[in-house]
Design a binder for these strands. Sequence first.
DNA 1: CACCTCGAAGTCAGTCGCTGTCATCACTAC
DNA 2: GTAGTGATGACAGCGACTGACTTCGAGGTG
Lengths: 187, 187
Amino acid sequence: MVRWEPGAPARLQQAALELFATRGFEQTTAAEIAQSVGLTERTFFRHFSDKREVLFYGQQLLVQAFLDGVATAPPDAAPMDVVAAALASAAAFFPADRRAHSRIRQSVIDQNPALQERELHKLATLATTLADALRARGVDELTATLAAESGVTVFGVAFTRWIREDEQRSLAEIETDVLGQLRALTG
Amino acid sequence: MVRWEPGAPARLQQAALELFATRGFEQTTAAEIAQSVGLTERTFFRHFSDKREVLFYGQQLLVQAFLDGVATAPPDAAPMDVVAAALASAAAFFPADRRAHSRIRQSVIDQNPALQERELHKLATLATTLADALRARGVDELTATLAAESGVTVFGVAFTRWIREDEQRSLAEIETDVLGQLRALTG
DNA sequence: CACCTCGAAGTCAGTCGCTGTCATCACTAC
DNA sequence: GTAGTGATGACAGCGACTGACTTCGAGGTG
C-alpha cells in the first residue's frame, strides 16, 4: 500500500494547465489545483514557488538546449553563427507533435498579464545565460549581450509564428527565416 | 480648510521609492507607504493597480517620447533609421541630472524579481507599441517587430551602461554606440 | 443663504497567495 | 525492532488586493 501516488509535480502541472485553460488563471485557486489531484494547497507550494511557476516547470531544459547548441559551434565561429547554432538546437525541443500543447499553453499565458511577466522574465534569464556562454567563448561583453538578446528575440518571434494556425513550417525553418530577416534589417 | 493635500499619487510614489530603497520592497507594506503620507491602504490601491506599479508611474511619457521620435523621421527612412530617431528622442528624457534618481530606482528594481518582471513587461509593451508605429508607416509586420525589439534592446543595454558609476557619456551617445555595435554584429 | 451634486478619501469585511511550524506515517537501513 | 527519512497534512497567520458603503469639503444653482 503506497502512501502517495508518485509524480506529484507532473500531476499538478497537468491539472493546472487544464483548469487554467477552461476556467481561467485567476479564477483557479492553488487549492483547487491541488484538490483535483488529491493533494493540499500546502503541497502545491512545496513543489512550485508560486502559482504561476506551475506553467513553467521544465523550462530549464530549454535553456540547456540553447547551451548545448552553443557548444556544437566551432570555436572560431562568429557570435551570430553561434547563436544560430543555439537556435537550431532549441528548435529540436519543439517537434511538430508538440504544437497543439504549446498552443494551449500559450493561449493561457497570452490571456494573463501576470503570466506574460513571468514568461518575459524566463526569456530574459535565458538571454543572460546565453550571453554568459558567449563570453566564456571569448566574446566581449557588449557583443555577447547584443547577440544573446537578438537570439532570444528571434526565438520568441519564430515561436509565435510556429504556433499560428496558418503556419506549416517547422520551428527550425522559421527561425532561419527570421534570423535572415534580422540580418537584412541591420545590414 | 482643504480636506486633503493635493498630489496624492506623486506623494505616494516618492514615499514608496524612499521606503523601498531603505527597507527593501518586500519589507515595505502598501499600508506603510500610505500611512507615511497620511493616507490609507485603500487609497493607495485606488491610485496604483498594484504595489509594484507605484515604481512605474509615468512610464507612458517614455513611450510617447519614442513615438515622437518615430514621427520626426522622414517618410522614406529605413526601419532601423526610424528606430534610431526614436532612441534619440527617448534619450532626451534622461538628462544628466536625472542619473542619480535613475540609479536609486534601478537598484531597487534589480534587487527584486517581481519588480524586474514588471519592468520587462513595460519594455515589451514599449516594443509592441513601437512596432505598431512602424507598421503604420508601411513597414511589414516581421520587419517592424524585429526593428522594434532591437530598438528596445539597444535602449535597455544603453540605459544599463548610462547608470554605471564609471560611465561619463550621455545616454544618446551610448545609444549610438550600442546601435552601431548591433549593426556590426549582424552585418 | 440653503440646497445639491460630485469626487476623493475612509471604513470594514472578505478572498486568496503564500509561509512557518509542527505532526503524521509508509518506507528504508541497520 | 528501532531509528531515521522524506513527502505530505493540518493549522495559524500575514499581506496584497477588492467590493460595498459611508463621509464630507468644494463648487455650482436657486
